[in-house]
Write a protein that binds this DNA or RNA. Structure first.
Lengths: 342, 342
DNA sequence: CTGAAAGCGCTAACAA
DNA sequence: TTGTTAGCGCTTTCAG
């Protein structure tokens, strides 16, 4: 059960453990006689030797592990990101320790400590809050961090994100091109960076494009949930301000719009067009299929992992914030308005 | 950066490191003078001491980590299972090392080795193949394993699964109660235990209920994918054998049925009812909302974690295979057939 | 109840 | 190029 150790290998190869260690480590192999290397390697192979990372870590103070904090794995946004991270890290023999915060700051800080105590070599934070004491804490403790899908105000850590602003702009232009002039917007919580960035981009693009910029066409929600989306659309409809299309800050909010529209007997896209954001799985199966903005989640994760490896290796790349392109995916939920107003 | 060590704590408390260790460990605390314990604890607190699990593991040969192998985190079936596992394990200070096999046996075996070399205390296998050399390997190596969503033929490890047979039976009865007599079945790959169990249950229930048991009403697919589901339904329709409802081995296959039906202009549920299995997220948003069988995925993961902890603690519970109840979720895709045949 | 000592398996100076 | 030595931080015998 407790497998062969380096000492066993050394013994069998007739060398000292130290030499065996050097022979087996690619970094130091060059400093040892080629013949010896071969002898050690063959001994290791016949014994079925596998190094003990625990012992190595104790000595080197590096664990080849990375902590990843996300709000909730069950949210379909995250699995692809996590896979991107894992695929890149696994190729470099790193392992991910994943933890779900459920967006609770206390739990987040608690998990941070737990992972810290496990001596992870770095962190990937996939949590969404703009306020983020952890990031500064990590910076203070000198531990590498990469942010995913979010920014801190102080920009103390590198980040990878989808180009939300461009995504929102694409949706607005898409709808404007279809002939819509009055667009409503359902914004996500302004405590999240996506919430802030997307709303800002909406306002900006609406202004640029010369569309109706009525503040009563914007509702800010408290959470990225279907219920909040439904409530928001109801509020919008009740206000009486005319609009022919609604853009939701993400797909869940858009699903809520579907609910509210159905409940009020309003046809989509005939009377109101709806667009979401994130391009969750199966949106093409909805009725009508939901127009959304595709975010390259897998690539975001992969890139975050690469940045983190760079940081761990103390190769601080020149780029601090990587923005990956988003892409409008037009589907059946957006169409020209019933009658173009003059 | 390298935080205080046990030695520091001991020094500050004026005791030997060995004593400090005993005082801090709940298992051995009783063998230490209460006053001393208090002194050590206060020293630890003021120094902000956190134990080093690496060093502990090296000594105890236990890592408080568990390896979890799943085909693909991106498949919506798995995130809830993983969360169930993580939540239960985290509460016991265990950490999950997650790895995706993409259903490749080579990769699976490779990942097993990688996790083994990291000295995980046990494994949870969420892969689906009936053939599973890894399970026997683990048994031989004396390392605890729990299977999730699958069974091996030799039953060498405990397993947790949804009650697939009951789920399928519920669907069959549901359709029969609606008046259907000729049910088609699209089976998943017979190399997976779910594929086998569900098909068997279908045949059994059809026989029990005295429904049409025509072999040409069954198609076996090569993969649990939408495309395979569409192909299967096309094949079924082309055969010309009459049927008014089709049960798919899982939701992805059912989505494929939607595609094929739409393509042929066949109304669902008007002319053909469709049912899936697993109750993936957002099925209620489809049009028509897909009738499916809910599988308690989170609980399956949680229970698997509990069984694994039992095994690790050498408390082999009496139960070897835990089956959790599944529940039919009737939605709009199933309805009475157009005209009840006599 | 506590101290002393040994050692888990490995790596990294330092010598030779 | 290789051997020697000294731990990494912790637990756990064994004495006392």
């Amino acid at each position: 059960m407790p497998g062969p150790t380096l000492k066993d290998v050394a013994q069998r190869a007739g060398v000292h453990p130290g030499t065996a260690s050097r022979a087996l480590n690619p970094e130091t192999r060059s400093r040892v006689n080629a013949a010896t290397v071969r002898r050690v390697e063959s001994a290791a192979r016949t014994l079925g030797y596998v190094g003990n990372p625990i012992a190595r870590s104790l000595r080197t103070a590096r664990t080849l592990t990375v902590g990843m904090l996300i709000p909730d794995l069950t949210n379909p946004l995250f699995p692809p990101i996590v896979r991107g991270v894992e695929d890149v890290l696994a190729a470099r023999d790193y392992t991910v320790l994943l933890a779900n915060t459920d967006s609770s700051p206390e739990r987040e800080s608690q998990l941070y400590d737990a992972l810290r105590s496990r001596r992870v070599d770095g962190f990937i934070f996939g949590t969404a809050l703009t306020q983020h004491p952890l990031t500064t804490r990590a910076a203070r403790e000198g531990i590498p961090v990469v942010l995913v899908n979010r920014l801190t105000d102080d920009m103390v850590a590198p980040a990878v994100m989808g180009d939300d602003a461009s995504g929102v702009a694409q949706v607005v232009h898409h709808l404007a091109d279809l002939g819509h002039t009055a667009l409503a917007y359902i914004a996500g919580p302004q405590s999240t960076s996506s919430g802030v960035i997307r709303l800002r981009a909406f306002r900006q693009t609406v202004a640029d494009r010369g569309l109706v910029a009525d503040p009563s066409l914007v509702v800010v929600t408290q959470a990225w949930t279907e219920d909040e989306g439904a409530d928001a659309l109801r509020a919008l409809l009740d206000r009486g301000t005319r609009f022919t299309a609604v853009i939701a800050g993400n797909d869940m909010l858009a699903l809520g719009c579907y609910d509210a529209l159905r409940e009020r007997g309003i046809a989509c896209p005939k009377r109101i067009s709806v667009a979401g954001f994130n391009d969750m799985p199966f949106l093409d199966k909805l009725s009508p299929p939901l127009t959304s903005v595709h975010v390259p989640t897998y690539e975001i994760g992969a890139e975050a992992a690469r940045l983190l490896l760079d940081q761990i290796a103390e190769r601080p790349g020149p780029v601090r914030v990587v923005t990956l392109p988003t892409r409008l995916v037009p589907r059946g939920s957006t169409a020209a308005p019933e009658s173009t107003p003059h």
